[in-house]
Amino acid sequence: MTRRMVRLEMDVLVVNGLISLLDDGGVQVVPDLDDRRQWLFTGDNAVIVASAGHTDHYAALTLEVWPSAPPAPPADRAWEVVEERVVRLSSGDLEVHPLVTPPGTQILRVGPRGAYHLRAHACGRAEIAALTPDPDIHALRGTERLLLQFWPSRHQPS
C-alpha cells in the first residue's frame, strides 16, 4: 500500500481570488487564467487555484506528497470537484503564496526536479461564492477547503 510521505495543513489567504504555489528554481510559466470554467491551472513551476469567493478570505489548504498515486480520499469527505494535472518543477520546492508576507507562506518539498502528477480536490466553493463579498476575511475561514496531492509522473522531461 502506498504511504503518504508529507502532509502540510494550513489556512491560506486567498488574495485577488487566487492561491499560488510557485517554484522559484526556474522560470514560472503561468497559464491563461481567463477561463472561468476552470479552477485549477498549472504551468512550468506554477500551480494556481482560482477561488470561487468574490473577496479575500482564508481557505483551508492541505498539501500532500506521495511516492505514487494516492488512494481515493475517504468517502466521509465530500469533495465537490476533483481535477488532475501535471506540473513540471525546476527545483522540486513549491512556495505557497510567495507574494504574501510571512508567516503566510510555507515551502513544500515535493521532490527532486521533474514532472509531478497533481490531483486537486475542492469543496465549499458554492458556499464561499454565496457568502462573499464579506469585508471580514476571518469570518469565512475554512469555508472553502482544498486538498492538493503530488506524486512523481512517469513522463519525466528530458
Rank of each mutant, 00 (worst) to 15 (best):
D24E: 12
D11Q: 10
R37K: 11
V14W: 04
P157D: 06
P98M: 12
A72N: 15
L22S: 05
T42E: 10
V6I: 08
P103M: 08
V81W: 03
W66F: 01
D56Y: 05
P135E: 11
T101V: 13
L99P: 08
Q149D: 09
V110G: 05
A139Y: 01
A126K: 01
R85D: 11
T105D: 09
E83Y: 06
R3T: 07
F41G: 11
D136N: 12
G142A: 08
T2I: 14
A46Q: 12
P98C: 12
P31A: 15
R85G: 06
A139H: 12
S51Y: 01
R3M: 07
W79H: 08
A60L: 10
S158P: 10
T143P: 02
R77W: 05
L21V: 04
Q28G: 12
G43H: 13
H155G: 03
A59D: 07
A129K: 03
G25N: 08
H57S: 03
I107S: 09
T143A: 02
S20I: 07
V14Q: 03
P31R: 14
I19E: 01
L94R: 06
L8S: 04
R37H: 10
L140W: 01
Q149N: 07
F41K: 12
V81M: 05
A59E: 04
H155E: 13
D76E: 15
V81S: 04
Q149A: 14
Y58M: 00
V86T: 15
L8R: 06
A115V: 10
F150K: 04
R3N: 06
L8E: 05
Q156R: 07
R88G: 11
A59R: 06
V14T: 10
T101F: 09
L108R: 02
H138D: 15
H138Y: 15
L140V: 01
L99W: 15
L147P: 04
V87E: 06
L63M: 09
L33V: 03
S153D: 14
S68T: 13
H138F: 15
G142E: 01
P31S: 14
R141A: 13
V15Q: 13
N45H: 10
R36L: 12
T105H: 08
V30T: 15
G43T: 12
P67E: 07
D44G: 05
R113W: 05
P152Y: 12
A59N: 02
H54P: 00
M1Y: 13
D34A: 13
Q38C: 11
Q156L: 07
I128C: 00
S91T: 10
Q156Y: 08
A46G: 15
A129R: 11
H155S: 11
A115H: 09
V15Y: 12
V87C: 06
A139C: 03
L148Q: 05
T55N: 10
L63Q: 03
W66T: 02
G17Y: 02
H97I: 00
G142N: 04
G26V: 11
V87S: 04
I19M: 08
R36T: 14
